[in-house]
Amino acid sequence: MQSVRYEAPTSLDQAARTLLGSENAKILAGGTDLLVQMRLGLKQPGLLVDIKNIPEIMQLTLGDDALRVGAAVTGALVGEHAEARRLFPGFVEALGLIGSSQIQGRCSAGGNLCNASPAADSVPALIANRALCNIIGPAGARSVAVESFNTGPGKNCLAAGELLVSIDLPLPAHRSSDAYLRFIPRTEMDIAVAGAAVALSLDEAGICTAARVAIGAVAPTALLVTAAADALIGSALDEASLHAAAAAASAACSPITDKRGTADYRRKVVGVLVRRAAAIAKSRIEAQA
């Protein structure tokens, strides 16, 4: 019978060394994915490296340029951060959709990202907000745009011994906001059939000056859809441009048919979500003082 070792390093250095020294190590943050996968027999690590005793990984700080979210900062903590909610309402609501209240006390944006599920809720919202992933490893520190972090279902760009430390969300420009919507057949406790995040900036006349559109659960990884953003930029976010963005998102995706929905259905619904999320982001900007 296989046994599992458990280590809880207290510094990034120590964590990196522990990871490098083990063949079959898994990083344990909140464990809301990993422990379930272990119980189902999908993953059988020989070593669990618990990163929750490392200060950098547990900090949530608002800097001059960015909101820095430590890789294992819980959804509940982010949800209670008033500035995070004000600056990135779409990201906060995406993270808040993961699991139940109990899960919110453990899950994190970093974990959601590293688990690399195509349906991860917080990832499209991170992409829409131009988030950067801060990674440390044997070769030192590096940063990766979040849309490049995941490489396929269950796969990410971390090399052996590398560790995600934090995620930076650059502070948005004046008159900007975001929104995330997902489709599930229930109201909660479910996994996205399709998801869409939109981040927008408007000028004083209400014309869209910048936009990022990202979609989830409709391709092997969450996708940044520049064509959808292009359809919005320069418009007053009228029905025609919203529909054009929706069509661009539907065209960009490559969904599968599975028990959660058909490819055709996902393609249609992701467009609807892009259109609706853009309208919400717009109304959020308009509601700003």
Binding site: P185, R186, T187, E188, M189, D190, I191, K259, R260
Partner: peptide, 16 residues
């Protein structure tokens, strides 16, 4: 059986 759990065997939750 492709959905042998409450994630994909969708009984209603209270908020539904």
């Amino acid at each position: 059986l492709d959905n042998p759990g409450f994630l994909d065997y969708r009984i209603p939750v209270a908020s539904d």
